[in-house]
Structures are given as C-alpha cells and as structure tokens.
C-alpha cells in the first residue's frame, strides 16, 4: 500500500469517527429537546411537583434548585481540597515516594464507581456522622467524586507553568504562600475556574452518589444544609423507573441537558474573553 493511500485511509477513519461521535451526540441532544420541549412551560420550571403519584403533574423547581445547591457544595468542598493538594504536591512536596503514593491514591479515587462513593457517603456521612440524607451529605459525596477531576487538572496547570517564574518569585525572598496567592493564582485563575465549572457539570449530572445520600422523591427547596433535597438526575430516575410520567421525565432531561450545556459552555466563554484582554 503506498503512502498516499495510507494517509487517505487515516484521514477517512478520523473523519468517519468524528462524524459518528458528533451525530450521536447531536442526535441525543436533539431527541431530548424535541421530546422534552412540549413539557416545558413556566409552571414546569417554577412549580413544585404535584399529583398522585407525585411528579405526574406539576413542575421540577425544587429539583433544579436542589441540583444547583448540591453542585455548589460539591464544588466548594472539592476545589478547596483539590487546590491545596495540587499546591502541596507541586510546590512543597520534595519526597518522590510520597508524590508517587499521592498520585496513585488520587488516580484510584478517580476510578471508584460512583455508586460505591454513594455507599461510602451513606455509611459514613449519613449514618456514622449523623448528617442524615441531606444536602451536606450529598454535596460532600459529589465533592469526593469530582475531587480527582479538579486536582489532576490543577496539578497539570501548575506542572506546565514556567518554573523559572516561580523561582524568580522565590529569588525575591518571597515565601511559597505569597508566590501562590499573588503570582500563580492570578495567572491561572481563569484556567482553574474553567476546571471547576466543568467539574460542576460532572457533579450536577451524577445520580448514583446522591441516591443514598441526599436525594428524595419529594422535598421543598431546602432551607438548611441538613435537609434532604430533590435533584434532577434522581427525579428523572424516579419518573422513568417508577413509570410515573414519561413526558415529565423528558422535560426534566431537557432542563438537565440545558444546565449541563451551560456548565460546559461557560468555560469556553471564560477562555474566549481572555483574548480580549
């Protein structure tokens, strides 16, 4: 086979793969939009679920707010831990063995199936720490799920920076804490925000970690972090799983997809606006 044909085949392969992925993705999105659009109206967005069984009528407002709250708690919890871990590993840790062990642990955490994280959240947070099925327990469980996602990316950002800039800061007699807060954080703020937003999108769509730890079939918008919540993915699961209302399930999926797309588009806008600076 001559080189020209090989090249053509590779191009063809890449092209077909690209088209397959894109068309599948757009099919899913368009299908859900078409099916779900008919259920969408103002009452659906700002109303509480009603009817018997609950969810067959009414809206999904508490689930939207519940999902957003869960995401916020997860992001705050995971970001604080992930950034401090990444900074420790990149700037402070000089012990090669410890570095390797930490990386192994983080990568393993990333590989834990989310339902097992849910089980851990249930036994440890809900029962042992007595948080109950609550926003807090679910948020933390989701936080554990997205922690490696954020940590790995932030560490990569710090790892790929120009080390000489950091050393130049040290060379002025400045401690690492100041170097991180006043030099690295301002430089990489946008990248870190983009990462956290993407992780938020990951968290908001996850059902397994919150099934046992936070989500319930019906709850009003929570007033405290210790109250149980409704959440979009769980609501969707119940509506379809229990055969309550297929139309409302598609409506819920529609809202969830819109939220997810927003969470994924925000980082792109975030990096585009950098060009204007």
């Amino acid at each position: 086979m001559n080189r020209y044909v090989k090249d053509l085949l590779l191009k063809l392969w890449c092209g077909i793969s690209g088209i397959m992925v894109l068309s599948t993705l757009s099919f899913i999105i368009i299908y859900i939009f078409m099916k779900g659009f008919s259920s969408i109206n103002l009452d659906f967005i700002i109303g509480a679920p009603k009817g018997v069984p609950i969810g067959s009528e009414g809206g999904i407002y508490p689930a939207i707010i519940g999902s957003v709250y869960l995401m916020i708690i997860a992001c705050v919890f995971a970001t604080v831990l992930a950034i401090s871990t990444a900074v420790y590993l990149e700037l402070y840790c000089k012990n090669e063995k410890l570095l390797k062990i930490m990386h192994l642990v983080i990568h393993c955490t990333a590989g834990i199936p989310s339902i097992i994280l849910g089980m851990f959240g249930y036994t440890f947070l809900v029962l042992r720490l007595g948080l109950g099925r609550s926003l807090m327990a679910g948020g933390i469980t989701l936080g554990i799920m997205i922690f490696p996602f954020i940590e790995i990316r932030v560490e990569k950002i710090l790892n790929e920076m120009d080390k000489n800039i950091v050393y130049a800061s040290y060379a002025l007699g400045l401690p690492k804490s100041y170097t991180f807060l006043k030099l690295l954080l301002p430089i990489y703020k946008r990248d870190i925000i983009s990462t956290v937003l993407l992780a938020g999108g990951f968290a908001i769509g996850a059902a397994a970690p919150i099934i046992l730890t936070a989500a319930v079939m019906y709850a009003p918008v929570p007033r405290t972090v210790l109250a149980p919540v409704m959440a979009l993915p769980y609501h969707l699961y119940i509506l379809i799983g229990e055969g309550i209302s297929v139309e409302n399930a598609y409506g819920t999926a529609f809202v969830l997809i819109v939220l997810l797309l927003t969470m994924n588009i925000l980082p792109i806008l975030n990096s585009l606006s950098r060009g204007g600076e």
Binding site: D162, N164, Y167, A168, Y170, A171, G173, L174, L183
Partner: peptide
C-alpha cells in the same frame, strides 16, 4: 538569604 542575595535568571522571567 534570598532577600539579601538576589538572583537573575538566564532567560528573562518577567511576571
């Protein structure tokens, strides 16, 4: 020490 003994690198390291 570094406050008393400054260091300038081979390549410019402007922030």
């Amino acid at each position: 020490i570094r406050k008393e003994i400054g260091l300038v690198f081979q390549n410019p390291t402007c922030f």
